[in-house]
Design a protein around this nucleic acid. Structure first.
Lengths: 162, 162
DNA sequence: CACAATTCAGTTGTGCACAACTAGCTAGTA
DNA sequence: TACTAGCTAGTTGTGCACAACTGAATTGTG
């Protein structure tokens, strides 16, 4: 390691390694920074960003089993169970065991949860207002991140050999 | 919502809003996916990714006050204090109050902490091996994320008016 | 000098993320 | 039928992130 030779190829490798670590750090930072912006925008709704994501999936799909929400958000029950219990405690959702399959718990919106959709539509407007990002660049970024994530959690968890 | 009018401008706005939220989610997912890859790569070193970041700053800069580490990693004392205490408990760093300014706590590497740098140099190699990402794309991604973060935490926390 | 404002690290409380595990249910099989 | 294997949600424990606060040390100002 630390090849101080007169060669040129080796330092290029070192730069690549530094770059990987910088990208991961940048990702980490950007994610937290975005979290801060959403925290602000969601304050009135009394939702955290992950709770908002769960509400979005329910607003879009209607009643869903916990399993499916987990697939859509890439979260496991260890994260979702308490999160959904908090949403239930806030009166936004209702959880009932499925009659067809008692293992499954169906989550559906209450009236209050459904009603929250209207004020929630202001959230992306606020985000757009405080960030003012370039749509074209966002599109590129989105594509890169999706490809990155796909590659990372395929290679990262080889237990998915089915 | 869902403007089914024959107009074109309104749907474009709606697409932008959807895009913002998708980018944020993609960021969130990518960050967690990268976290999983690092978790694997750091298992042998008994470090979490944030602990690894703290060690990187110390390997690079030597002795640092907690304040400076927080600036470099964009973390506050509420996160850093327990993290550094865990690194101290693991015997990797030593914390001492600065004689010049008793408010400040200086963090420096122990022999074990310094020695860990050698095996840690394998970490980026492993990351590179499991991800196999395109350097050019990484460079673009890095630039976009940095600009994004800069814009987000300027606008997100206006308390930095100095 | 005195005293008010600021700085720095730490603590507390809440919530997310994830690993490891438990408990109940379902389905497939001997 | 009984038994096993796998699925689903939930629980426990650890660690990060952040807001709000505390307490000690320092700095600035009258």
């Amino acid at each position: 390691m630390t090849p101080r030779t007169a060669d040129d190829a080796a330092p290029a490798t070192e730069d690549l390694l530094r770059l990987e670590h910088q990208v991961c750090f940048a990702l980490h930072s950007a994610s937290r920074a975005f979290g801060g912006v959403y925290r602000e925008a969601l304050r009135d709704l009394d939702l955290t960003y992950p709770q908002y994501l769960a509400m979005l999936t329910l607003w879009e799909h209607g009643e869903l089993p916990v399993k499916r929400i987990g697939e859509l958000l890439r979260l496991d029950s260890g994260t979702l169970s308490p999160l959904l219990k908090r949403l239930e405690a806030a009166g936004l959702v209702q959880r009932t065991r499925s009659p067809q399959d008692e293992r499954s718990v169906l989550v559906r919106l209450t009236a209050a949860g459904t009603a929250l959709r209207l004020p929630a539509q202001e959230v992306p407007l606020r985000i757009a207002a405080t960030t003012g990002l370039d749509p074209a660049e966002l599109r590129v970024l989105h594509g890169m991140l999706q490809r990155l994530t796909d590659r990372l959690d395929v290679t990262g968890s080889p237990a998915n050999a089915k």
